[in-house]
Amino acid sequence: MSVLTTKEIMEIIPHRHPFLLIDTIEELVPGLRAVGKKCVTFDEPYFAGHFPGEPVMPGVLIIEALAQTGAVAMLCQDEFKGKTAYFAGISNAKFKKKVVPGDVLVLETEIIKVKGPIGVGKATATVDGKIAATAELTFAIGSGE
Results as ranks from 00 to 15, higher is better:
M1E: 12
S2C: 06
S2W: 03
S2Y: 08
V3Y: 00
L4K: 02
T6L: 13
T6M: 14
I9Q: 10
I9L: 06
I9P: 06
E11C: 06
I13E: 03
I13D: 04
I13Q: 03
I13L: 06
P14C: 02
H15Q: 12
H17A: 11
F19I: 13
L20P: 09
I22V: 13
D23S: 11
T24V: 13
T24K: 09
I25R: 00
I25N: 07
I25Q: 04
I25K: 03
E26K: 05
E26M: 13
L28F: 01
L28A: 03
L28T: 09
P30G: 08
P30H: 07
L32C: 13
L32P: 00
R33M: 15
A34K: 06
V35R: 14
K37M: 13
C39V: 15
C39D: 09
V40Y: 01
V40T: 04
T41Q: 09
F42G: 13
F42E: 15
F42K: 00
F42L: 15
D43C: 03
D43F: 11
E44C: 04
E44M: 04
E44V: 05
P45E: 13
P45W: 12
P45C: 11
Y46W: 15
F47Y: 10
G49L: 14
G49V: 14
G49H: 12
H50R: 04
F51S: 00
P52H: 08
G53N: 04
E54N: 15
P58F: 05
V60G: 02
L61N: 09
I62V: 15
I63C: 07
E64L: 07
A65N: 03
A65W: 03
L66I: 10
T69Q: 08
G70Q: 10
A71K: 04
A71T: 08
V72L: 11
V72K: 10
V72F: 09
A73E: 04
M74V: 12
C76V: 12
Q77V: 03
Q77M: 15
E79F: 10
F80K: 02
K81G: 06
K81M: 11
K81D: 10
T84M: 12
A85I: 08
Y86H: 13
Y86K: 04
F87N: 01
F87C: 04
F87M: 08
A88P: 03
S91I: 00
S91C: 05
N92I: 00
N92A: 14
N92K: 15
A93H: 06
K96P: 05
V99G: 05
V100N: 02
V100D: 05
V100K: 10
D103M: 05
D103Y: 00
E108F: 00
T109H: 03
E110C: 06
E110N: 13
E110A: 14
I112L: 03
I112Q: 05
I112C: 02
K113H: 14
K113T: 08
V114A: 02
K115W: 01
K115F: 01
P117Q: 11
V120N: 08
V120R: 14
V120W: 09
V120A: 12
K122D: 14
T124R: 15
A125T: 03
T126Y: 05
T126W: 08
V127H: 06
G129F: 11
K130A: 14
I131P: 00
T134Y: 07
T134N: 09
A135C: 01
E136R: 02
E136C: 02
E136G: 01
L137K: 00
T138W: 01
T138S: 14
I141G: 00
I141K: 00
G142Q: 06
G142I: 02
G144R: 01
G144T: 07
E145C: 07
